[in-house]
Structure formats: structure tokens, C-alpha cells
């Protein structure tokens, strides 16, 4: 029973990692950039939902929608201002810029809201279903259900819709995609908006479970989601989902059966092993560079 409980906890945090990992993977797929500022979008989203609810007194659902819109717009702005001018530069310039954007976001938020953590009071009712002597909280169930629904919707969007197909075409060959009449800039903007919107949902679900909001909270969360994306195969959407869940479960089991302190070490150990043994992850493509 304890084991199942740990698994369920792992799936809960894993679902959040998966939502964030999707953003890493989609952005990597389309502009070949590891967007290290992506974790900080979660931080922005956490502050946003807290601000909208406590300062603007919005109801939870409106605050959530506003947070998704806010993060999507920030995602588009970051791409336009920081990454687009570097699209034809060396990849290392883009990577360093992404780290710069990450520091910029953290420090800006610290300037506005100070470094002291804020407490977020969850809007999900406490309590849950009891199974045996354990209870499964509503937060766990809602997190898993919402994440699952979003992943199904995203899969359909990418595989069936016109914009989804355009995203895949651009990620494979953006020059040829242009010749089809696809506006590559808009497609990239859409991808950033989508990834940031998913991070916003992850942020809301995260603060409902963990309540503490701080300017640097996105770093570790983002890094774990990055490990998840690499594990699943960066650039792959099902890979990001699977990677996120596996990382969450691995973390939860380590905490439950080995030691809480070792959980992060285990995760980054997984990253090292993946990079050594199968750098393309589960579903990654070993694409050669296109010239």
C-alpha cells in the first residue's frame, strides 16, 4: 500500500515535470534551443497566480486563466526580444542568452517581491479519498487528471490540427516550411506561447501542492524537467510525458525508501547515465546537424 502511495505521489509531481518538460522539448524541436529560462516561467506563473488571487482578489479560475495568458505572452516576448535576433547565430550564443534571461527574470522578480518567500493558500479543497489507512488527496487526483487531459489535448493538437502539423514541418525543415507558405515566425511564437502556457498550468498545480513561492524556485524545478525531457528524448512530445512521469516516480521512491537528501542526486545520476548510454533518450532522434 505504501508502495502504491509513493507511486501515486511520484505520478503527481511527475505530471508537473512532464508539463514543464513538454515546453523544453517543443521549443528544442522548433528552434534547437535548450531554453534554460523555461523553469523561470514556472516561477513567474506562481507569482502571477498568487498576485492575481491575493492582491487582485480574482477567483481561482480567473486567476488561473490570467496566469496562463500572462505566461504565454511573456514566452512570446522573450522569444522575440532575446532569441529571435540570434536565430542564425551559433547555438552557444543562444544557450548563454537563455541563461541570461533566466537570471534576469529571477532578479526582476526579487526586485519587485523581495527574496522572502510568499505563501500560497491552495484553492483545492483539502481531504481526499481514503484507501485502506492512507488517503489520496484531491490535489493529487486533480493534478494527475488535469495533466493527463492537457497531454491528450496537446497530442491531438500536434498530430491533427493545421497549426500542429505546421509546427512539425517547421521543426523538421523551416526553410522548406516557408516555401509552403507557413509563417515560421508565427509558428515559433505559437510554440513558445504553448510551452509557456503549459508551464503556467504546471505552476498553478505546483503551488497548490507546495505552497511556497520564491524567485529561485524555477531553477531546480526547471532542471528536473530538463532531465525528464532528455530522458524521454529531447524534441519528442511523448518522450517528455514519459520522462516526466518516470523522473517523478524515481524521485518519490528515492524519498520514500532511500533518503530524501539523495533524491536530487538520483535524478542527476539518471541524467548522467542517459547521456552516457543513450543520449537520444527513449524517443529522441539522432539527427545529424543540417547545414
Amino acid at each position: 500500500m505504501t508502495f502504491l502511495y509513493q507511486i501515486l505521489n511520484g505520478i503527481q509531481i511527475g505530471a508537473i515535470y512532464a508539463l514543464v518538460a513538454l515546453g523544453y522539448s517543443m521549443v528544442y524541436g522548433i528552434v534547437k534551443l535548450i531554453n534554460f529560462a523555461h523553469g523561470d516561467i514556472i516561477m513567474l506563473g506562481s507569482y502571477a497566480v498568487w498576485y492575481f488571487m491575493t492582491r487582485l482578489n480574482m477567483p481561482w479560475w480567473l486567476a488561473t486563466i490570467a496566469t496562463i495568458i500572462f505566461c504565454s505572452i511573456v514566452g512570446i516576448i522573450i522569444e522575440k526580444l532575446a532569441y529571435k535576433p540570434l536565430r542564425n547565430s551559433a547555438r552557444i550564443s543562444l544557450l548563454i542568452t537563455a541563461i541570461g534571461v533566466s537570471l534576469f527574470l529571477q532578479n526582476t522578480v526579487q526586485l519587485i517581491f523581495t527574496a522572502n518567500p510568499k505563501m500560497f493558500v491552495t484553492f483545492i479543497p483539502s481531504g481526499g479519498f481514503s484507501i485502506g489507512n492512507r488517503s489520496i488527496s484531491y490535489t493529487t487526483l486533480i493534478t494527475i487528471a488535469i495533466s493527463a487531459a492537457i497531454m491528450v489535448a496537446l497530442t491531438l493538437l500536434v498530430s491533427k490540427t493545421k497549426i500542429g502539423k505546421a509546427m512539425r514541418a517547421v521543426s523538421e525543415d523551416n526553410r522548406t516550411a516557408q516555401l509552403m507558405g507557413i509563417n515560421v515566425d508565427n509558428t515559433i511564437s505559437f510554440t513558445f506561447a504553448l510551452g509557456s502556457g503549459l508551464a503556467a498550468v504546471a505552476a498553478v498545480l505546483y503551488v497548490c501542492s507546495y505552497s511556497q513561492i520564491a524567485p529561485t524556485m524555477g531553477s531546480m524545478l526547471g532542471l528536473k524537467a530538463f532531465v525528464a525531457a532528455v530522458l524521454g528524448g529531447i524534441g519528442s512530445i511523448p518522450g517528455a510525458m514519459l520522462g516526466g512521469l518516470l523522473i517523478g516516480v524515481a524521485e518519490s521512491l528515492t524519498k520514500g525508501y532511500i533518503s530524501s537528501q539523495l533524491a536530487d542526486a538520483v535524478l542527476f545520476g539518471i541524467l548522467i547515465i542517459v547521456l552516457l548510454v543513450k543520449p537520444t533518450g527513449f524517443f529522441g532522434r539522432g539527427d545529424r546537424e543540417k547545414v
Binding site: 502539423k165 512539425r168 514541418a169 523538421e172 525543415d173
Partner: peptide, 12 residues
Amino acid sequence: FQRLTVEENLEM
């Protein structure tokens, strides 16, 4: 587009 299907290529 190598990773798209034949029909998806035509749709593009």
C-alpha cells in the same frame, strides 16, 4: 518532410 506522412506533406 521526412517525418510527416505522405498525405501530411500534401496538406502542407
